[in-house]
Amino acid sequence: MKNRIKVIYCTLLGLTLGACNSYDFEQEQYRNEINLLSNSQLIYDKQVADLSKSNDTIYLVAGLSGTQNADKSYRVALMEADSLLKAYNKSNYDIDVSRYARLLPEACYTIPYLEGNIPAGETQLRIPVYLQNLEKLSPDSIYFLDYQIDPSGTDAFNPKKKEVLLRIFKENEFSSTKQNVYYNYTSSYITTLDLNNPLVRRPTSSNQVFPLGGNSVRMMAGDEELGEYKTGYDRINEKSIVVTIGGQTSKNPLARKVTIEPYKTIDVVQMTPFEMYDNTFLINIISTPDGRATYYKEFRLHYKYRLNEADPYKEVKAILRMEYSPRADLL
């Protein structure tokens, strides 16, 4: 009996100790190699430049592989490249050269240094890319920075992760190029100002809004259709307007004045404020009696436009609305 108890105790103890026997994580399980942070397509597209700042910073990130922090520092040097961009364009657009992604113009960025060290005990080197003049960039084009590891100035590196395309997205308070941003027409009217054919339409569609500068966006006039975006170059140039958001109104600090101008060839005339179509950008907070609130970003516009000189104007009284969460915006 006594032996049986001992056997049981010993077995339990053995099992317990055996279960706790950890794998040997003390030792390095992989190689320490430099790599450039990117996804499986060698593109790093997680950063968005804020247009409301005159300068914003994103980063080229060099990482160090391995399961342990390295006990020595690693040298990293980068150099400009173009092979990934060429591969990207060829594989995505083939001979459709007009749609090719572009390198970010030099006037739009500064990189203070391209060499550095990943110190012992650390796993990353972040090389800043100072962005400026992004309002000059078309929101319809894809821009990249293409950099690769300079072998002469870099310690051991992973050849499969030696080059990266850094995607340049831009955003402002009203829209972003990172994802499609749509505002929906609500309580809107589009009236053809033709005495013989006074057509009134009530659009309920949505309008895709593109960021231009820190305080400006582009959208299609009235209910003109953007159509298929890939083939929309001419339609965008002919039918788009630019809405620039200015200062607060004296009546409501949540409303800001806007000015409406043509994007390219369209004839647009901003009309005077009319009732709720008061040419403002409004943070509209609709509260329910139980204290909850729904937040909307709203363009309240009053303008008229025409695509051809011989056409009658179309008067647009529009509320373009997008629901948002102020807390999520802070994340």
């Binding site: 004296s250 009546k251 409501n252 600090p253 949540l254 907070i285």
Partner: peptide, 9 residues
């Protein structure tokens, strides 16, 4: 002093 009502929060 303006000729319009105003709101604030």
């Amino acid at each position: 002093n303006t000729y319009a009502p105003r709101i604030a929060r």
